[in-house]
């Protein structure tokens, strides 16, 4: 079993993607941490055998870099029962990688009959709050740890929503006692696609519960923005990031890039930019305020 060099997740990391595994292992890089996509390592043979190539490489990665786990298929808001097989596999991976934490999305992705392989938004209702909070509690009880809940990008909204997205997430977090993963690109994309402002969204959130920030690039489709993770972080998203850092300056930040994946150096440059903005935000804070914003692993 690999031993993670440190649980400390700090500064700006990058999402681990297959084309970068080889260069990450062949050379030393100044990358403070990596986020591993849970689902890439849960295929049936993977966790049951210790010598699958994917897992062998992941073990090597975990020996050199602190990691976190980020999942997409838990369907925390789904009405279909939680998949115990998936949960078990996730827990095994969590132990195997010594990941600092596990994050998932505030969405649903499947029913008992159908699977979407996309992150589908929930209506912001009291029913959905209670339902998702209960399921998050179940997952946290099973893992023995708090998880991080991420706001998703959305292209539609429901007539029967009773509250804003920010209010919805705040309520879920409160009821389940989970933590937040704040995706600033998603907040920007949603404001453009559905109205509202990212600032109002941030204002509704309990920012003291944010343990990780995501940054990514979107694709402009003319009539909407697609959360494509195929571009550098947009200037407007960097600006929003800076405004969030004024309140939570030391929050570990991650660069996500999933399509048209560039050379590793491109992601590292983006992460370096994020780290520099974090340093600036920290420098601006009075010493007392900084002590109050110190982040800890959940």
């Amino acid at each position: 079993m690999p031993v993670t060099p440190s649980h400390t997740i700090r500064s700006a990391g990058i999402g681990l993607r297959t084309p970068h595994i080889k260069p990450l292992l062949e050379q030393d890089w100044d990358i403070p941490w990596l986020e591993v996509l849970t689902d890439n390592f849960l295929s049936k043979g993977n966790l049951l055998s210790g010598t699958n190539l994917d897992l062998a490489l992941l073990d090597s990665i975990c020996e050199r870099y602190p990691v976190t786990l980020h999942g997409v298929n838990l369907s925390l808001g789904g009405v279909a029962p939680l998949d115990k097989g998936y949960l078990n596999a996730m827990k095994q991976l969590y132990r195997r990688t010594s990941a600092a934490w596990v994050s998932e999305h505030a969405c649903f992705s499947h029913s008992t009959q159908h699977q979407s392989h996309d992150l589908l938004p929930l209506p912001y209702t009291a029913e959905a709050v209670e339902h998702m909070a209960n399921r998050i509690s179940q997952v946290q009880d099973f893992l023995g740890e708090q998880i991080l809940l991420e706001n998703v990008s959305a292209y539609l909204s429901y007539q029967n929503s009773e509250m804003s997205e920010g209010e919805f997430l705040a309520e879920v977090v409160e009821q389940s006692d989970c933590l937040l993963l704040l995706d600033i690109n998603n907040a920007y994309v949603n404001a453009q696609n559905l109205g509202g402002t990212p600032e109002d969204f941030f204002a509704a959130l309990p920012l003291h519960r944010v343990r990780e920030i995501h940054l990514a690039g979107y694709a402009d489709k003319g009539t909407y923005l697609l959360d494509a993770h195929n571009n550098p972080v947009a200037d407007k998203v960097w600006t929003l990031y800076q405004s969030v850092l004024e309140q939570i300056p030391e929050t570990p930040t991650l660069i996500e890039w999933d399509n048209d994946i560039p050379e590793l150096e491109v992601l590292i440059n983006e992460a370096t930019t994020a780290a520099q903005l974090m340093s600036k935000a920290v420098d601006k804070l009075p010493r007392e305020a900084l002590r109050a914003t110190q982040c800890h692993s959940p």
């Binding site: 009405v79 009959q113 209506p123 007539q159 559905l194």
Partner: peptide
């Protein structure tokens, strides 16, 4: 509309062009 019905209609729409979800969306 219940959470279960919305999810059912959404997944039908994603998998088979079913348009039952549209009536529940904001215009």
């Amino acid at each position: 509309m219940s959470l279960a019905l919305i999810q059912q209609d959404f997944l039908k729409a994603v998998n088979s062009n079913h348009n039952g979800l549209c009536g529940h969306l904001c215009q």
